[in-house]
């Protein structure tokens, strides 16, 4: 059996036609990450990806969704059948979340966004519909195009539709906070916290699972500090710093301004932006070859550069 061509879907075919094959084009979501990796070059034509949830198969733990769908709409649909996915809801779209590649605050619980993208369907620089990956959780059939599309800021192809892995929503989820706890000790005390956050003074943890397990973990945290249940996480400063988890032990408030760090992850939400880091030369050269092979004329999202974030 040959897989049915993507072009047989009129919605995908229309998107491919709109993207075309010649001029500079950028895909516009909700603009929540519009400046990440640089601004789109002036004069670039804007397109929007198709919207809608194609199918949610809870028993297969997958959802097929158009890229222009708001993440909030996807989350609400999944929740109706007791599931969630790894996409963070910043008010943006599914395609935008995947193009940006940022993880959810509860990444330790819901998994990384990169690992959750099972199949991508995108429009190439030549205006062709391309499928990479497959609809099953386990799949090693050929080169891993979904991986290279995640976090690429739409510079290798314009995502039209994806199949994502879904997971059951935890039976219980609660936030607790302490002002006298070592956040690193809190993390080590817990089996699978969904998040451990720290602002230099307060430590927040998110515990999820069966209710008796959550209660037991909260009791265990008593050895680390006086934790009390709170409504939710603290407000997060706007800038994202990507650090190694070990670097969180040596944060400098002068550099960051106010911050909320994700312990065990290395992500820091800070008031000031992270200085841009240059890719090492060999990685930059390899990245340039990827870009020129996928988009020889540089027409896809010109001005955006995933290496300059």
């Amino acid at each position: 059996m040959t897989a049915p061509p993507l072009a047989a879907d009129p919605v995908l075919a229309a998107f491919a036609e709109e993207v075309g094959a010649t001029d500079a084009v950028a895909v516009e979501g909700a603009r929540t990450r519009w400046a990440v990796g640089g601004a789109v070059a002036d004069g670039t034509r804007l397109v929007k990806a198709p919207t809608g949830i194609v199918r949610h198969e809870a028993e297969e733990m997958i959802v097929c969704v158009r890229a222009g769908t708001p993440v909030a709409e996807l989350a609400a649909t999944l929740a109706q059948r007791g599931q969630r996915c790894a996409l963070p809801d910043h008010g943006g779209t599914v395609g935008g979340a995947i193009a940006a590649g940022e993880n959810d605050l509860l990444v330790l619980g819901c998994g990384t966004l990169r690992a959750s993208v099972l199949e991508v369907r995108y429009v190439s620089a030549e205006g062709r519909l391309i499928r990479g990956g497959g609809p099953t959780v386990k799949n090693v059939t050929g080169f891993d195009l979904p991986r290279i599309m995640v976090g690429a800021l739409g510079t290798l192809g314009l995502i039209a539709e994806v199949i994502l892995r879904t997971n059951p929503l935890p039976a219980t989820s609660l936030w607790a906070m302490a002002t006298d706890a070592d956040p690193f000790a809190a993390r080590d005390a817990l089996l699978r916290p969904a998040a451990v956050l720290w602002d230099g003074t307060h430590t927040w943890v998110n515990l999820e699972g069966h209710a008796p397990d959550v209660t037991a973990q909260l009791a265990l945290l008593g050895t680390v500090g006086r934790f009390a249940e709170v409504q939710g996480p603290p407000p997060l400063p706007a800038c994202r710093w990507s650090l190694a988890p070990g670097e969180l032990r040596h944060l400098h408030a002068q550099q960051l301004g106010g911050f909320v760090a994700s312990v065990g992850v290395g992500l820091v939400h800070a008031e000031r932006p992270q200085p841009s880091r240059a890719l090492p030369p060999t990685v930059a050269a390899l990245s340039a070859r990827v870009k020129s092979n996928f988009d020889p004329t540089g027409r896809l999202n010109p001005g955006r550069n995933p290496g300059a974030r």
Partner: peptide, 11 residues
Amino acid sequence: GLEAEPPGYDL
């Protein structure tokens, strides 16, 4: 890399 969200394509 060990950092939370390494920049660049996911090579």
